[in-house]
Amino acid sequence: METGGGMFDIFLPIAGIHFNALILLAIGFAVGVLGGFFGVGGAWVVTPALNIFGFNMAYAIGTDLAHIFGKSIVATKKHGKMGNVDVKMGLVSILGSVLGVEVGARTVMWLTAKGEHVVGPVVRYSYMVMLFGLGFYMLYDYLTKDKRAAAKAAAAATMPPGQVPEKKYWNIPPMLSFPTSGVRISFWTIMGVFFLTGWLSGFLGVGGGFIRMPALIYLVGCPTAIAVGTDLFSVVFTGAWGCFTYAAKGRVEIVAALIMLVGASVGAQIGVTAVKYIHGYGIRLLFAIMVLLAGASVALKQFDVGKAAAYLVMCSALAMCLVIMVQMARGFMKERAEKAAGPGASAHK
């Protein structure tokens, strides 16, 4: 399905197709909102969307990575201003992830040597287990948060005054401090976590944003908003490399990437601002839903319903954008009403 003949129809010389510029802007906008809000690149939304509208798959991946690079700069800058980027943590994450990706890629090569009939299903089923496992765990975490908070409060109440509950950490030296995230953690623990996320990223052949973000929350202990911003900071580097390597192979349609970047930049402003109004557990809940829908899409693909899988991802992304924008608008209105009522009004609540 090539979009052509309309008022906003443009010719994309590298991909060799006619395409509607408004569709490019809309795809960019949608993934900009999701990327800014969840701290992910969003390749799992853009690639099938471009493919549905007529892009050859190779050009869809390359063009997507190019626009992700530009968009992550815009979103990271804004997250940085809101104090959501832990640069030190981001740099350590890149170091650990790079090593993990290398081992993950080698694992795939080892499986490939065993035969194409082995590697394809192993990777696809692992991807599904990963997405459904992560999604259901985050959903469970959200649903039981009040119960856990009550148990924690009850435990604290039974303790003698001044004593705090003991926390279990592997304090193997050297210890690293991350003041922005408020985390002090062993170098080996953090390298292990990022090595694991990198390995998954290399093994599954994905950017890894959706794996790193929950890992930062659950395994490292970052606040959700900082996990989002720090993950985007890492995406800047992976996106830059993705853009370069795909362009060097002739697979980046730069005109389309630039148009998508404009849409994504507007969307990213909304997505990042929404983090201000939707707090930690709200972000985790929406992320869990999105990950489960992505898992359903991979399952559809596995059962040879590729077109339905792409439409499912696109529709889910659009619906999630709408939810984020509505929640942001509600938060904004509430904040404005509180400001109008004066500082005393919120203090009396």
Binding site: A66, H67, F69, G70, K71, S72, I73, V74, A240, C243, F244, A247, V252, I254, A257, L258, L261, S265
Partner: peptide, 9 residues
């Protein structure tokens, strides 16, 4: 491509 995306971003 890489430089343009970075500059525009």
């Amino acid at each position: 491509c890489t430089v343009i995306m970075a500059i525009v971003g």
